[in-house]
Write a protein that binds this DNA or RNA. Structure first.
Length: 303
DNA sequence: TAGCAGGAAAATC
DNA sequence: GATTTTCCTGCT
């Protein structure tokens, strides 16, 4: 089915899909190809509208407006995080970059795989899991795979997952799948909580209950920001840590600053992470997560 | 709490 | 072709 989506507010499809928040979109020729739910679609930005072609499924304009959060006005949000020259420049450089509203389970599973890996690697692992355990379907003559649901992955042998290139992440992914399929973790419930409770609950449910799994504060923040509507969540990865140390030394505790700027850079303890993340939330405000996304892009571009 | 292993692939030299 | 780095977490 073909349709167009009008853009009433700034939006850059390229920046949004290249900003490391999602791992399944592919840029081929003029189009971006993606799998959402049980269908596939291709999207192309033409000025202030999106041209879309999707498989039959309920992949329509209303679905995409929700996924790309197009009903939210970006200007006032961008203005709210432009507290200084650095962020003003970043917002102007990557104008139109938006946060997505992703599926909770897919987002959680993807970021569990993201530890100690670069983006091409993460994309490869996610694609590998989908082709091994997702359901295949055709779109424009090519085969695509759905993201396998938690119930499916919960019954897979860890050794089998390991064999598909996940390495030490395999047992983590399986435990997360078990927790989600058993209902111990529920995206809808997490969404209802305020940020602090949601973050705590995610960490507690996922690690405290001996369910182990590779979900620490950083992965939890990614999931809250990208799939639970917690716009103040401020994930701090190595890039963000570097950018904070470089452009926002006054926000960073002197000891932590020293640790981040030495060679090789030290890693944040859990306490240092939560302190720094809280300071960043306080500084950038209720949309700190968007500021984080622009900072990330700046960091990647500056090398 | 500081240090380190973990698995494999991409970047870099 | 070898070495370092990689959107990190959990264990000691």
């Amino acid at each position: 089915m073909e349709f167009t989506v009008a853009l009433g507010s700034p939006f850059s499809l390229d920046y949004t899909l290249e900003s490391g928040q999602v791992f399944r979109w592919e840029h081929r020729g003029e189009w971006w190809y993606g799998v959402l739910g049980r269908g596939a679609l291709k999207v192309k930005q033409e000025g202030d509208s999106l041209r879309c072609v999707s498989s039959e499924d309920p992949l329509d304009g209303s679905f995409l407006r929700s996924y790309f959060r197009l009903d939210e006005q970006l200007e006032p949000i961008m203005a709210s995080v432009m507290k200084d020259q650095t962020m003003t420049a970043a917002v102007q450089r990557f104008y139109g970059l938006r946060l997505l509203r992703q599926d909770f389970w897919e987002c959680l599973a993807s970021f569990v795989l993201a530890t100690n890996a670069n983006i091409p690697r993460i994309r490869k692992m996610v694609a590998s899991v989908c082709s091994a355990y997702g359901d295949p379907f055709e779109f424009e003559g090519l085969t695509y795979f759905t993201f396998p649901d938690a119930e499916r992955l919960a019954e897979v042998q860890v050794s089998e997952l390991r064999a598909s290139g996940l390495g030490y992440r395999a047992p983590f992914l399986r435990r997360v799948a078990e927790s989600v399929s058993r209902g111990a973790v529920n995206g809808g419930e997490v969404e209802m909580m305020d940020y602090d409770r949601a973050h705590g609950a995610l960490l507690k449910v996922l690690s405290g209950e001996k369910l182990l799994l590779g979900v620490g504060p950083k992965v939890a923040d990614c999931v809250l920001l990208y799939s639970c509507g917690k716009d103040e969540a401020f994930p701090i990865d190595v890039w963000i840590a570097r950018e904070l140390a470089r452009s926002y030394p006054n926000l960073v505790d002197p000891g932590v600053l020293k640790k981040l700027t030495r060679e090789p850079p030290g890693k944040l303890t859990q306490r240092e992470y939560s302190d720094l993340s809280r300071v960043a939330r306080g500084y950038f405000g209720p949309h700190a997560g968007l500021a984080q996304q622009y900072l990330y892009m700046m960091g990647r571009e500056n090398g």
